[in-house]
Design a protein around this nucleic acid. Structure first.
Lengths: 322, 322
DNA sequence: CTGTTAGCGCCTTCAT
DNA sequence: ATGAAGGCGCTAACAG
C-alpha cells in the first residue's frame, strides 16, 4: 500500500478502511516501525517541543518549576528542551539554539536581566510564543506569569513587624532585577508606616554564595543592630543558615531568617525555613496554557498574577519581651 | 547563489571562495537567517541530541548528574533531551519517545529495575549507543559506567566498625536492584569478619518517603538495639534525619546516620551528612565519552568503574567508651 | 570553487 | 477510501 495511507492511520485525521488499517497496524508491529518525528516536524513545521531556559539548575526552585511544567505538558505530546544559562552571555546562544531547533515556544523560568539588551528575547517573541515566569517585559509581545511576590513580601514584612522586628537586612538578588525590586517594594511598603524601621540591603546575587557577605557583616557587628535577615530566596536563605551556623550564631534565637520560594529543602534544614510559597503549580499551569493558547492562534494574555502564601516555620521568632 | 554554497559556508566542510563566503554571511545577517536544525537532522540522519532518562527529578543526585553531563557536552553540539520516568511503566514510553525523536544515543542515569523485562533497553542498544550509569546489563550491548559503590560501602562499613558500631540498619533501596545489592554486598563484606554484628535491612525504596518506615521501627524499639542507620542515598538519609528529629532522636548523639551520593544538600542539613562521593564528574565524563566513541564507530567499552570516596562529616560518632 | 540533482521521511492537496 | 506527487530545508555526490 502507499506511504500516504500509513501516514493516515498513524495520525487518524483522515478516513481509512477498517481492513487497511489492520493491515498497516500489523505491518508496523512486524517491521518494528516507529514514525520519524524529525521528518514529521519538518513537514509540519512544528516540533512539538517547547524550549525551557533557566539560569541555574543548582537552585531547586528552577528544578521544581521544571517538574511542574512537565506535569502540565505530560498529557500532551509536548516535550521540553532544557537550556540552562549559568553565565549571562550564554543566554543569547541558548535562545538561538532553541530557535535553530525550531521549538514551538519558549518558557523562561528566569532570564538574565543584567544583559543590557533583551532584543534576543523580544525579537524571538515575534517568531514563537514566549512567556517569562516571574519577570516581565512590558510593551513587548512576551507574555508574563508572575507570583504575587510583592504581596507575599508585604505580608512577610507585616509579620516581622508584628513580631517586634525593626532592624532587618535584605539579602541577595540584584539591583534592577525584577524579582528583587518587586520583593523590596513589598517589604518597604510593609515598613512604610513605621519610621523606626532600619532596612539595609545586600544585593549580592542569586547564587548560593550570595550569603557569604554575611561573614563581613558579622565581623562588622551585624548582631549589634539586626534582628532579621530576609533573603531573596530559600536557596540564599539556606546559604545564610550555613554561614550563621559556621559563626556560632543561632537561628532564630540570635537572629531571624526568612526565605522565598518554599523549596523542598526548606523543610530539611534546621531550623525549618519560614518562607513564601509562590504557587509553582499555578505558575506552571498558566505558563503552559498561555503557550498552548497562543499556539492555537488565540490572543496572548499580557500578564497574569498568581497568589502567593506566607508559610510560617521555625526560622523566625518574636522579639517582643513580655 | 545556490543553496549548496550556503550550506558549505555554514558547515565549513568544503572549500568556498573568500568573496562568496562574505556575501553569504552578509545575506544571512540581513535576512536574519538561521539554519533549520530539523531539516539538517533529517538529511544527516543525526539529531545531535542524546536522550537522558532518570527516575526522579526530586532526588538531587539525578539533577547533579544531569549538570555534570551538560558540562561534558557543553563543548560539543550535543543537546540533552530529558525524560524522567517517575512511574516505572512510563519507562518504555519514554524510551520510545526518545527513539521517535531520533536521539543519537541514550544515557540512563537510572532505570526501573523492577520492570520484569528490559527488552526495551537491550533492543534499543542495538539501534543507538546506550549507557547505564550506576547499573548494568551484562551480556548485552548496553554499556555501563558505575561508581565503586561496593568499595565505598565497604570502607564506610569498616569505619563504622572501628567506631564501635555493631548494630546497624540498612535503609532504603529495593531488593534485586543493582545499587542496593552492590551496597549491601560491600557492607556485608566489611562486617564479614565480625560475627557480633547485627545487620537489619529495610528496603523501602528510593523515594524520600523511604525513611517513613522508621516511625514504626522507632515505636518497635529501634533505639534499644541499633546504633547506626546506613541509608542507600543521601536523599533517603535526609528523610531519616527528618523522621528522627520529629521523634526527638538526636543525631549523632542517639544514633549515627550515613548517606550515599554526596549531594549538595548533605552540607545543609544538621548534622551535616557523612556520606560517600561516587565521583559524579568522572561518571558523567565516562558516560559521554563512551557515547562519543561509539558514535565515532569505535568499539564500545563494556563496563567501567570509577572510584568513590568516603566523606566524614557530622552525622556519625564513635560509641566506644574510653 | 560553485551550481545541479537526488534524496532524508513525512504530510497534504489533488486525483481517482 | 486510497494512490500519486510536490514540498518541508538541508546535505552530499556529481558535474562542470
Amino acid at each position: 500500500m502507499s506511504i500516504a495511507t500509513v501516514s493516515r492511520v498513524i495520525n487518524g485525521n483522515y478516513p481509512v478502511g477498517k481492513k487497511t488499517r489492520q493491515r498497516v497496524l500489523k505491518a508496523m508491529k512486524d517491521l518494528g516501525y516507529s514514525p520519524n518525528h524529525v521528518a514529521r516536524s519538518l513537514a509540519l513545521q512544528s516540533t512539538s517541543t517547547i524550549g525551557v531556559v533557566c539560569t541555574d539548575l543548582k537552585n531547586p526552585y528552577f528544578v521544581e518549576m521544571i517538574e511542574q511544567i512537565q506535569l502540565v505538558t505530560a498529557g500532551s505530546s509536548l516535550q521540553l528542551l532544557l537550556q540552562n544559562t549559568s553565565v549571562a552571555e550564554n543566554e543569547r546562544d541558548a535562545v538561538q539554539l532553541l530557535l535553530d531547533r525550531r521549538v514551538d515556544a519558549i518558557i523562561f523560568i528566569a532570564h538574565h536581566e543584567e544583559l543590557d539588551d533583551v532584543e534576543h528575547i523580544t525579537s524571538t517573541a515575534k517568531m514563537v510564543p514566549v512567556v517569562l515566569i516571574g519577570q516581565e517585559l512590558p510593551g513587548t509581545k512576551v507574555m508574563s506569569i508572575c507570583a504575587e511576590e510583592e504581596q507575599g513580601m508585604y505580608t512577610l514584612g507585616k509579620q516581622l513587624l508584628q513580631l517586634g522586628h525593626r532592624n532587618v537586612l535584605f539579602l541577595g538578588g540584584k539591583e534592577g532585577s525584577h524579582p528583587t525590586e518587586v520583593k523590596l517594594r513589598g517589604l518597604r511598603n510593609a515598613f512604610a508606616l513605621n519610621n523606626d524601621v532600619r532596612l539595609e540591603v545586600e544585593l549580592t546575587g542569586y547564587q548560593y554564595t550570595a550569603a557569604n557577605v554575611l561573614e563581613d557583616r558579622i565581623a562588622g557587628g551585624l548582631l549589634q543592630w539586626c534582628t532579621a535577615i530576609v533573603a531573596v530566596s530559600d536557596y540564599v536563605a539556606i546559604g545564610a543558615l550555613n554561614v550563621l551556623d559556621a559563626n556560632g550564631i543561632r537561628v532564630p534565637t540570635d537572629i531571624t531568617v526568612t526565605g522565598f520560594d518554599n523549596i523542598f529543602w526548606a523543610t530539611c534544614v534546621r531550623p525549618k525555613l519560614t518562607t513564601v510559597e509562590p504557587n509553582k503549580e499555578l505558575l506552571a499551569q498558566n505558563a503552559v496554557h498561555a503557550i498552548m493558547n497562543a499556539l492555537d492562534g488565540q490572543a496572548s494574555i499580557g500578564k497574569v498574577l498568581v497568589p502567593s502564601e506566607l508559610i510560617l516555620r521555625g526560622s523566625h521568632r518574636s522579639i517582643i519581651s513580655k
